[in-house]
Measured scan of single mutants.
Amino acid sequence: RKEMTAACTPRRRIINLTSVLSLQEEINEQGHEVLREMLHNHSFVGCVNPQWALAQHQTKLYLLNTTKLSEELFYQILIYDFANFGVLRLSEPAPLFDLAMLALDSPESGWTEEDGPKEGLAEYIVEFLKKKAEMLADYFSLEIDEEGNLIGLPLLIDNYVPPLEGLPIFILRLATEVNWDEEKECFESLSKECAMFYSIRKQYISEESTLSGQQSEVPGSIPNSWKWTVEHIVYKALRSHILPPKHFTEDGNILQLANLPDLYKVFERC
């Protein structure tokens, strides 16, 4: 597991931080080997919608929660590849102030007048994250320049770009939802926020969305749709870069829909 690298990086740093090793061990302890084997050997059937997909393993048909699986995938990559990410360069710098204002204007932020003026909160978020810029760049390849612009994001899987519609809320939550006081809790909560931002979430995906850094293989055609990215990038990574937690067998994120021999018997009677 320590050699797990989802995106190509030129050289690998050895990380011996106790906090990170502890988080890696927790993933191992909570892992479910049968689910790992199923995901490793599954045959992708198709997307139901951005949140759900169908896959077959041996004779069984499964309904998989793409949102939760991708979130767990990105969390584990962030923990196992800690401080070893490439950088996704933004085509132009994104001012943190503008991103924070967009987030505060969104109902998702939960902002009320009692929280104070949005401009003041946005300025605080910019200054707060600028103070964390060195650590964010060093460990997470999340790059913020001296003017308070976001200029780079971590490359977690080759050819995958997170849904940038979720970027404003991500920046807001970096400042408000991460435990910045304790090292282990900081790395864990920061990785979880980043994983949620990178995950496939239906509120940020339309039929026209593209999450891939590449064009489709047909010359002159439109960019790959999110469905292509889910199948050929995300579920491909799920084959080798995730140890599913045991609770996925109990919380409805992986559901067995049918045993195909039983279905064949039904059709034979028709």
Rank of each mutant, 00 (worst) to 15 (best):
D181V: 14
G110Q: 12
L255W: 05
P168Q: 02
G213V: 14
Y75D: 00
N179S: 12
D262W: 13
V20C: 04
D98S: 12
N253E: 15
D98T: 08
G86S: 14
G152D: 02
Q214V: 13
D138W: 04
N84M: 02
H57W: 06
Q256D: 08
K265R: 15
S216A: 13
E71V: 04
E147V: 14
N28L: 15
T249G: 15
E119N: 12
D105L: 14
S191V: 08
W226P: 02
E119T: 11
E231M: 01
P95E: 06
A103M: 01
R11C: 07
N65Y: 03
I205C: 11
V126G: 15
G110V: 11
E92Y: 08
Y124C: 13
G152Q: 05
N259Q: 13
F248P: 01
N16S: 07
I125D: 01
K60L: 11
M38T: 07
S191I: 10
I144A: 03
E177V: 09
S91P: 14
W111D: 03
L90Y: 02
S199Y: 00
L190Q: 01
N65V: 01
P168E: 03
Q30R: 13
S199L: 01
E33D: 13
F187L: 08
Y204R: 03
H42M: 13
I144K: 01
F187H: 03
Q76K: 01
R36V: 06
N179R: 10
W228H: 11
I254W: 04
E231S: 03
K131W: 14
E231A: 03
Q214H: 08
N28H: 11
R173I: 01
V234E: 00
C186H: 02
M101C: 15
C186E: 03
G31Q: 13
P244Y: 02
I222L: 14
S191A: 12
A94L: 08
D145Q: 03
E146D: 11
R239L: 01
M196T: 13
R36C: 08
L260E: 09
C47A: 14
L136K: 00
L96C: 09
N28M: 12
E188Y: 13
F97P: 04
S240R: 13
E119S: 11
L69Y: 02
L136D: 01
I169N: 14
E26H: 11
R11Q: 07
H42D: 00
M135G: 03
F128T: 10
V234C: 03
R13Q: 06
Q58F: 05
I144F: 08
L255Y: 05
N179I: 10
D158A: 15
T229H: 05
W111S: 05
L39A: 02
D145L: 01
L69G: 01
P154H: 00
N16P: 10
C47F: 11
S206Q: 15
F197Q: 02
A6M: 05
E119A: 15
E33I: 05
F44R: 01
S206A: 11
T18R: 12
G252V: 03
L64K: 02
E108V: 09
I171P: 00
K132S: 04
I144R: 01
E123H: 09
C186N: 04
E185R: 10
C47N: 12
D262A: 06
P244I: 03
N259H: 11
N253F: 14
L63C: 05
L23C: 03
F248Y: 06
A237S: 07
I157Y: 03
D105T: 11
P107D: 13
L243M: 12
H57K: 03
K236W: 04
M38P: 00
F82W: 04
L156C: 03
S106M: 13
N149A: 11
D105C: 12
K236Y: 06
L156W: 02
P154D: 01
M135E: 03
S221R: 12
N149I: 12
Y264V: 11
Q30P: 03
A103K: 00
I144W: 03
Q256C: 15
L153P: 01
L102Y: 10
V230E: 00
Y198R: 00
Y235P: 01
I200R: 01
F85M: 06
Q56C: 15
P219S: 10
D158W: 07
D145S: 07
M101W: 06
Y198N: 03
S109P: 07
W111L: 06
A83Y: 03
L61S: 04
M196H: 10
H32I: 06
L61C: 05
R89D: 13
L174C: 07
V126H: 07
E92S: 11
G148N: 14
V48W: 09
I15L: 06
C270S: 15
N253K: 10
Q215L: 09
E177H: 09
P117Q: 07
H40E: 15
Y160Q: 01
T5V: 05
H42R: 02
L63H: 00
L260H: 11
P95G: 15
G120V: 11
K68A: 06
P162F: 01
Y198C: 03
Y75E: 02
L69Q: 00
V48A: 08
Y264P: 15
Y198E: 01
G110E: 12
K132P: 01
S22F: 15
L90I: 12
F267T: 15
A7Q: 05
F82D: 02
E177G: 06
D115V: 09
Y264L: 14
E92K: 15
H57D: 08
P223D: 11
V20S: 02
Q256A: 13
I79Q: 02
L167A: 04
L35K: 02
E217M: 13
L96D: 00
L17C: 05
L164T: 06
G166R: 03
E250P: 04
L172H: 13
D138R: 05
L156H: 00
P117M: 09
I169T: 13
I169V: 15
P107I: 12
R201M: 00
V218I: 11
L96P: 00
L99K: 04
S199F: 00
S43F: 12
L96T: 05
F44L: 04
A53K: 00
P117G: 11
E165D: 14
A6S: 05
N16W: 07
R12V: 14
Y198V: 01
Y264G: 15
I14E: 14
D98G: 10
P244K: 01
G31W: 04
S191P: 01
E217T: 12
D262S: 07
Q24Y: 05
Q214E: 14
S189N: 12
E134D: 14
V48T: 04
K184C: 07
Q203P: 06
L121H: 11
I200S: 02
D105R: 08
V34C: 12
A122K: 00
E123Y: 06
Q56V: 15
I169S: 13
M196W: 04
L63T: 00
M135D: 04
K246T: 15
E231I: 02
P168G: 10
D181Q: 14
G46F: 09
Y80H: 13
T112Q: 14
L142S: 03
D115K: 09
E250A: 08
A6N: 06
G31F: 05
P93G: 06
S225I: 06
K2I: 11
P219F: 10
I125K: 02
R201D: 03
Y235L: 02
V230G: 01
L23N: 00
N49C: 12
Q203G: 13
A7K: 04
F170W: 03
I169Y: 12
L21M: 11
T249E: 15
S106I: 15
